[in-house]
Design a protein around this nucleic acid. Structure first.
Lengths: 191, 191
DNA sequence: GTCTATATAATGATAGAC
DNA sequence: GTCTATCATTATATAGAC
């Protein structure tokens, strides 16, 4: 550990998230997390005050990344390109954040009961506001929500089973772009 | 209550489902269900051997309805109209089955851990097979999944907040039909 | 069909030693 | 920063009376 600070905290986050995605938030006990980490429960409590706190820390991490997109989008003002916004969201959904989004999408009821005033969800609300033209018709509203779902679902191996993993993000992106674009108009995928 | 035969079993199903949707499957205890029913836990165990059994019974109920659609679709053979299939699915998603679909969609990880060899999910797999032309490209596959999501999400009051409840199903149906139809072609909504 | 009472196990969380 | 030991609470589930 020369110069290296303890990385236990990050390891807890990572393993907890893995288990949450695998078997759900409620079903995953601190004992399980501790076992897989090969420490005791008490050690967890040194790093996180409660189980909810682990989730909160996970959200803070990603909320920061969402903020960057939000800041960019607000700078654009009225000239905001929704296509470009979706492109940026697609990048947000890829990479190291993949499991968090699956966690959110597949544990909705469990999460809604967390006492946390969820810092991620309020930001996603803001994203939807930007994605939907003001006073958009309900169809457009629904399509915007689905665009986000498409991005996340595209990373789920069970959904695009016979598509090589490296191709999935682009498939998801194309479908998402179709959903936010007026029908009939073609869209371009920027990479 | 006068002259009424015991409908306790159905009341358990209904209340359990309400709670599952409200706060998630794992978080909902038999004690809570019993309390809201104003009976004791032991009474529940007379009707259902385990907590999982309640879920199983919920699924059997709806699986029957899915089977009717599957039977119809298979009768159509190669001439199956995917538009009409979506129309029938839309009706399946409406009415008394609304909460079950929300339950499934918002408790995915919790459900996947149930020891039940889920009779609903295998049927939904079959639906997807019918919805997707054989060997469909991944985009089409994803869009088919999203069509189902659209139907369910349309019933979620939080998604289409400012749309009157009676209009939501039709909005969802239109979006779902767009998703299964080749781009650019207009679709008709049969009611 | 519903009750009281209880068995048994697991959970989130804490105290305090090292 | 991690440990042992323990607490209070809750959970699913059962036995047996009425």
């Amino acid at each position: 550990m020369a110069g290296r600070r303890s990385d236990t905290r990050e390891r807890i986050q990572q393993i907890a998230l893995d288990l949450f995605v695998e078997q759900g938030y409620e079903k995953t006990s601190l004992r399980e997390i501790a076992e897989r980490l090969e420490v005791t429960k008490a050690a967890l409590y040194y790093h996180f005050r409660t189980k909810e706190d682990i989730v909160r820390s996970l959200f803070e991490d990603i909320a920061e990344a969402v903020d960057e997109v939000l800041d960019w989008a607000r700078e654009q003002g009225e000239g905001l390109s929704r296509t470009e916004l979706v492109n940026r969201l697609a990048q947000l959904v890829r990479g190291r954040f993949v499991p968090i989004w699956r966690f959110v999408q597949e544990n909705q009821t469990a999460l809604k009961e967390l006492h946390v005033s969820n810092p991620l969800m309020s930001r996603m609300q803001a994203i939807f506001q930007l994605l939907c033209p003001k006073g958009a018709d309900p169809e457009t509203q629904l399509r915007s929500r689905l665009a986000l779902v498409a991005l996340v679902m595209g990373n789920n191996p069970e959904v695009l089973a016979d598509t090589p993993e490296e191709d999935r993000p682009e498939v998801a992106l194309r479908v998402a772009l179709q959903l936010v674009s007026p029908r009939g108009r073609e869209v371009e995928t920027a990479t």
